[in-house]
Amino acid sequence: MSNALSHPALRQAEADLRRPPSFWTQFVRNPQTLVGGIIVAAIVLIAVLAPILAPYDPNLPNPDQLYRPPSPEHIMGTDEIGRDILSRMIYGARISLTVGLATMLLSGFIGISLGAIGGYFGGRIDAVIVQLSDTFQAIPGLVLAIGILAVLGAGLSRVVLAISLVSWVAYARIVRGSYLSLKEQQFVEAARATGVRTPTIIVRHILPNAIGPIVVILTLNVAGAILTEASLGYLGLGVSAPTATWGSMLVQGQRLIRVAPHVAIFPGLAIFLTALSFNMLGEGLRDILDPATR
């Protein structure tokens, strides 16, 4: 005789009784969000506490200590003008995180607004937004960012602007898709019937229901922006010298690769670890918030 619980209706009823575990329970249980989250938190802490943690002034040259290999005094060694690499790495975290988070906010704002407007209203305005997305997707992001910075000149806010202009499309596509399906749902119809204003419906009623995939892209966007910033810094189009950025430290490292390979090794590791932790966090959040696309 078969188990009584194997009947589909009963199984469904049982599943309904069992409440799904809360977000934070899932967050801690998922190895990707847990590990990624811890590393991200650590990097944020390092960036915030940079003045306390850094053993030396990151921009102070020391002519007696030129490209020394790692030693107890300088754990990661010194660069070509004798600056302490560990201290520069710690301050570099501030630039990378600032670029990552600022880009996330700006490109998120552009992409989510355009996606929501296109998806909700449809019609001609939607067609224009879709065509715009296609165009920006067609241009290799890094090439366009290089082009923009080549004419704007370097600098932190310009780097953020350039990376944002090439990374909003991912948001726009996802958000548009969510709005296309959500606007047909009954809760939106109910809101419309009771006379809620359209902007309120778009922002207060629909957006919270589309937030899962958005959070995933926000997180992955930070990783992408940090990698792009490093690439631009490597091409000399990043935040201006002598500010310590991981990308610009790598350029130095390349010049010194024969005599002092440690100069190139550490900043690359930092970029890798930071991008990896945000990517892990993002993919883990996808498992939790957006299981359909897993």
């Binding site: 190139a264 900043p267 690359g268 990517n279």
Partner: peptide
Amino acid sequence: VSIPPFWVGLM
């Protein structure tokens, strides 16, 4: 997908 390509190149 997380590793900076130009750094891999240098290494």
